[in-house]
Amino acid sequence: MSDSTATANGTLAEAHHEHPPYQRHHFETVSQQFDATNFAMWLFLLTEVMFFGGLFTAYLIMRNWYYPAFVEGSHQLSIFWGTANTTVLILSSFTMAMGVWSAQMKRKGMLLFFLGLTFVLGLVFLGIKSIEWHEKWEKSHVPGLRYSGQSFLNPASDPEVYAEYHDKPLAPDMASKTEQYFFLYFAMTGMHALHMVIGIGILGFMIIRAKAGAYTSGHYTFVENFGLYWHFVDIIWIFLFPLLYLISRY
């Protein structure tokens, strides 16, 4: 029994070509393994495109139907926080790209620095997002939970926004459609924020692994593919920002 096992192992060992420990046996080369994993990540991102695509399509149709409600709903969002958050997210995409570069160059200290910076910028983004959401709660603009059309039936009752845009009162049926706008606002920014939370979690895991020396010994596939995910989430925000914040601001 033990003899036959030994023989079998011996044959295996002979057929076994030299390769680094991280190369799976069913791949010819590390490069092939990288390409296959990278391709799989892109396929996953395509499913994400379809997922967010449904939300964007709903947004387009609703916006065409209830344009005046979307305009006045959009005026409730803060350009300042929106622009700040866009900047934070773009910076985090840059630090992530630099993280991938550090892993490629096998610089552990720099990799930790850039992953840490991406982690912090991700948290800053969520912090700003929660300031904005909190304001919606205070102004009763959370559909289903706490909603009032007062700001749209009587815009002058909302002096801050009124001073800037002088919105006209909406008819009651159109004013009620602002709830559709805020529903899409919360659904889209909420789904985006969920992706950020997941991303920040994985970043934390990567930082712990990177401290132990992972990714900087020539095998950086995980960092590269996580980078794709992070940049994808950035792209979603690049579209959410003009679509939700910048409707008819003049």
Partner: peptide
């Protein structure tokens, strides 16, 4: 056995 892929320069980033 290293991954032979194009490394984008930090200046481009």
């Amino acid at each position: 056995n290293d991954q032979e892929h194009h490394i984008v320069s930090p200046f481009i980033y």
